[in-house]
Amino acid sequence: MRRIDVISIGVVVFAIGGAGYLGLKSAGLDNISAGIWSQLLLVGIILAWSFSYVFRVATKNMTYAQQLKDYEEAVLQKRLDELTPAQLAQLQAEIEQERAQSGNNT
Rank of each mutant, 00 (worst) to 15 (best):
M1C: 04
R2N: 14
R3T: 10
R3W: 08
I4K: 03
I4L: 07
I4P: 02
D5E: 15
D5K: 04
D5I: 01
V6M: 05
V6E: 15
V6C: 04
V6G: 12
I7V: 12
I7Q: 06
S8P: 00
V12D: 12
V13S: 03
V13R: 00
V13W: 04
F14L: 09
F14V: 05
G17D: 07
G17V: 04
G18W: 13
A19E: 13
A19C: 05
G20W: 03
G20M: 06
Y21V: 01
Y21A: 00
L22M: 08
G23R: 02
G23K: 02
G23A: 05
G23I: 00
L24Y: 03
A27V: 00
A27E: 02
G28S: 05
G28E: 07
L29W: 02
L29G: 01
L29V: 02
N31H: 13
N31Y: 13
N31Q: 11
I32F: 09
S33V: 00
S33K: 14
S33W: 00
S33D: 15
S33P: 04
S33R: 14
A34D: 07
G35D: 06
G35Q: 07
S38R: 03
Q39Y: 09
L40M: 12
L42W: 02
L42K: 05
L42V: 12
L42Q: 08
V43R: 08
V43S: 09
V43M: 12
G44D: 08
G44E: 09
I45G: 01
I45F: 09
I45L: 15
I45V: 14
I46A: 13
W49T: 09
S50W: 07
S50V: 10
F51P: 01
F51H: 09
Y53S: 13
Y53H: 07
Y53F: 04
Y53V: 12
V54Q: 10
V54R: 11
R56N: 10
V57N: 06
T59Y: 03
K60H: 12
K60M: 05
K60E: 08
M62G: 01
T63W: 10
T63D: 14
Y64E: 05
A65H: 11
Q67G: 07
Q67L: 06
Q67M: 10
Q67P: 01
L68E: 05
L68Y: 02
K69H: 04
D70K: 02
D70E: 15
E72W: 07
E72R: 14
E73I: 09
A74G: 09
A74S: 14
V75G: 04
Q77P: 04
R79Y: 10
L80Q: 11
D81P: 02
D81S: 15
T84D: 08
P85K: 10
P85T: 05
A86V: 07
A86F: 05
A86T: 14
L88H: 07
L88M: 13
Q90P: 13
Q90V: 09
Q90M: 10
Q90T: 13
L91S: 10
Q92M: 11
Q92E: 12
A93Y: 07
A93Q: 10
A93G: 09
A93M: 07
E94C: 03
E94W: 04
E94V: 04
Q97M: 06
Q97P: 04
R99T: 05
A100F: 02
A100S: 12
A100P: 02
Q101V: 04
S102A: 15
N104Q: 15
N104K: 15
N104D: 07
N105E: 12
T106N: 13
T106S: 12
